[in-house]
Design a protein around this nucleic acid. Structure first.
Lengths: 290, 290
DNA sequence: GTCATGACATGCAGTATTGCATGCCTAATG
DNA sequence: CATTAGGCATGCAATACTGCATGTCATGAC
């Protein structure tokens, strides 16, 4: 008679994921269960929501319509989850943080250590994720991000300005000491794909020796002596085995922001963490610039 | 980790119903199950939603907040249900009608008979309810109502104008034949509580002999000869054993409307029923007025 | 004071839901 | 053409959920 709300949510996840297996994964249940819930929803609504094709479930128009409304229900649920977290004045329970992988060691970890000592009943989860966590979905409560703006719907706090520079193993400093004719090998981040123009001008004998999609790997390669890497100031300074080299003048880079969803922002846990993290960054802002 | 939507709905029903038992009844499950779902929701959200008092569950502030959002989710679900019904072009499945109890026999039943003959795959449910069914909640797809307007958010079709008159057992016609000095006993609908002024003027010896809250019962009393009843024209005419008496001049009364929710209105089943019902009323509109 | 009523907690047994294993089908790959 | 991988259907066993019965507590009626 009356529809089961979880079955509606299951339909939504099938359409989002594109398959029973994907829906099962995102719901944390076996895909068999997903298939049966879909069948139950169809029986309850007296509608065919998916065509069973050999290569998977294809939503019918009715299925899309159901998913659309289920999505609206989910939005309301997420509103709720955020607001509950935002109004929670307790210093206990889960607090989920996310930050750029390579910033965690030198800057975030020490703060977390002090935080858990001060608030032992808070369970801190840290997502070292380079992909942006969806703060509206509460994938994280608070995020440290390197960007030029905090994002439209998010509350943000600019913690520090940043500059980049060129770093390499000490041997490269010696090689460049001979002057502009020195041969400079660059390790380049995938998205840029070529030697920075300013570096090319200063050392005409520059070339790309390696292109890579992962900064941690690039640092490893640089420490091993493969070549020069352009990276944020703080990274080069905090990586043992690297020194700053004159291949490139320091230049300004994206700022460091602390961002959160406005609903979640007032939470006692979030506030307590902010109150430790922000002063840390502010006090150490010199480490991010030349 | 992730909240169960049905548990949220259960919380909503507990707050709406005021008790576990009431919530269980409206959800169609045992109240024990309701209690366990509430406990599960609390565990999942890590929040106390209700205080367990000796005289029942009292919602906490967090509980009210959860219910508020769950209510938003429910609204979205109802939107969906209505729209699915509205877009359904099949002439099969459930069709729920509601109409004033006493109008069903003489006017609605004959139409239903023809309708089910023409569309045998439609399961017609008829709610003979004097309370207004909530069409937004799809308690009914289509309603015949006696009112002065169709309602704000509903689509309406005015099918006929109505008048009321006074009816009684034949003996009362004889008694009144002697003239204005005749003694007239009235059976009065609870809300009015006294003899209509116009009747008092015409027959000064009028009095209330019985007040009642149910028109069917009043008709029974009238047939038994207890007194005179003011009722819609069609009712008096279709009740064997009653005749119109001159205790009161016919006077205009509320119109007869066919109303539905705009979302549901385009449904094939709803349209097919309308197309039979409206001509019936229009053709017989003379039966509602003097 | 006793009794009845309404609301909830809890233990137990039956049932329905779930997950796993197996098998079929299609599409992409070599 | 064989092979692999992704996607789904189905049967069976384990599990989780549900409903029932019984007991406790408070409130209000007699």
């Amino acid at each position: 008679m009356t529809t089961d709300w979880d079955d509606l949510r299951t339909v939504l996840h099938v359409i989002r994921g594109g398959s029973l297996a994907a829906a099962g994964a995102s719901l944390g249940v076996n895909y068999t269960t997903v298939a049966r819930r879909v069948a139950r929803a169809e029986a309850a609504l007296d509608l065919i929501l998916f065509e069973r094709l050999a290569d998977g479930y294809r939503p019918t128009e009715a299925g899309l319509r159901v998913a659309e409304h289920a999505s609206g229900m989910e939005e309301r649920e997420l509103d709720m989850m955020r607001q509950l977290q935002g109004r929670d004045q307790r210093l206990s329970g889960r607090l989920v943080l996310t930050a750029p992988q390579l910033m965690i060691g030198p800057f975030i970890a020490p703060v977390i250590e002090r935080f858990v000592a001060a608030h032992p009943k808070v369970d801190v989860t840290l997502k070292a994720n380079n992909e942006l966590a969806d703060l509206a979905r509460r994938e994280a409560d608070l995020a440290v991000r390197i960007s030029s703006s905090p994002g439209d719907t998010l509350t943000g706090l600019r913690m520090a300005a940043q500059e980049t520079a060129s770093f390499a193993a000490p041997i490269w400093a010696e090689r460049m000491a001979i002057g502009p004719e020195a041969q400079v090998d660059w390790i380049i981040y995938e998205q840029y794909a070529q030697v920075p123009k300013a570096a090319q001008a200063r050392f005409p004998n520059s070339r790309v020796i390696l292109t890579c999609n992962d900064m941690a790997a690039m640092i490893g390669a640089a420490v091993a002596g493969l070549g020069v890497v352009r990276m944020p100031m703080f990274l080069g300074r905090h990586t043992p085995g690297l020194v700053q080299v004159p291949a490139l003048e320091p230049q300004s880079y994206m700022d460091i922001w602390l961002v959160g969803h406005p609903d979640v922002w007032p939470s006692a846990k979030v506030k307590a963490f902010r109150d430790m993290l922000v002063p840390e960054f502010r006090a150490r802002r010199g480490e991010f610039v030349a």
